[in-house]
């Protein structure tokens, strides 16, 4: 009975990954057919068995409204910062000082930590050099920080990204922690 329940729970946790792999398989083949679906499921099962990874702990929350806000901010930042870094690369004076900045995140979830790092890394101007997973500290390299106000701005920006990601799919405890 408990064994059954555990197997079922594991299957639910793995399901998003399996569906993702099947969808990817069909995208790579570029066609929707029954044969693709069946081979996709087989390959997905094989891949998750052979390359075993600890399951991602999802919180079970998902908020579309905050996802839209996050994506809007993310693409806004991406466009703005890309042209900013391009300008810094091309202007005659080049870049001035950069900084390595420690950012203490609120969350303890590996998933939120990973997503925050990826989102921060994709936006130009910040780069994750080191992650302290136990204490949830990110060490960011930021370009062109002329004074301590710029450093604080980078920190605030990172926490803002974490706030939005927690609002999209963080656990209830994390939401409480970031909103307080």
């Amino acid at each position: 009975m408990t064994q059954d329940a555990r197997v079922r729970q594991r299957l639910w946790q793995q399901l998003p990954l399996l569906v993702g792999l099947v969808v990817l398989w069909m995208l790579l083949w570029g066609s929707l057919s029954l044969l693709n679906l069946v081979t996709g499921i087989l390959v997905a099962l094989l891949v998750t068995r052979v390359f075993f990874l600890p399951p991602v702990e999802l919180s079970g929350r998902f908020n579309i409204f905050w996802l839209a806000l996050f994506l809007a901010k993310f693409f806004g930042d991406l466009v703005f910062a890309s042209f900013q870094v391009a300008y810094q690369a091309l202007r005659p004076s080049g870049i001035s000082q950069s900084s390595l900045i420690a950012v203490q995140l609120v969350t303890r979830s590996d998933f939120v930590l990973t997503l925050t790092s990826i989102a921060l890394s994709l936006v130009p101007g910040s780069l994750v050099v080191e992650v302290d997973r136990e204490r949830s500290i990110l060490y960011l390299h930021a370009l062109n920080t002329r004074n301590l106000d710029d450093v604080d701005a980078v920190r605030a920006q990172a926490l803002r990204v974490e706030y939005l990601i927690v609002r999209v799919l963080g656990s209830k405890e994390d939401v409480k922690a970031v909103t307080s």
Binding site: Q97, S99, L100, R146, L148
Partner: peptide, 11 residues
């Protein structure tokens, strides 16, 4: 020498 803040080095 071009770093303004180096939190990682301190850590």
């Amino acid at each position: 020498d071009e770093l303004l803040v180096d939190d990682l080095g301190e850590a």
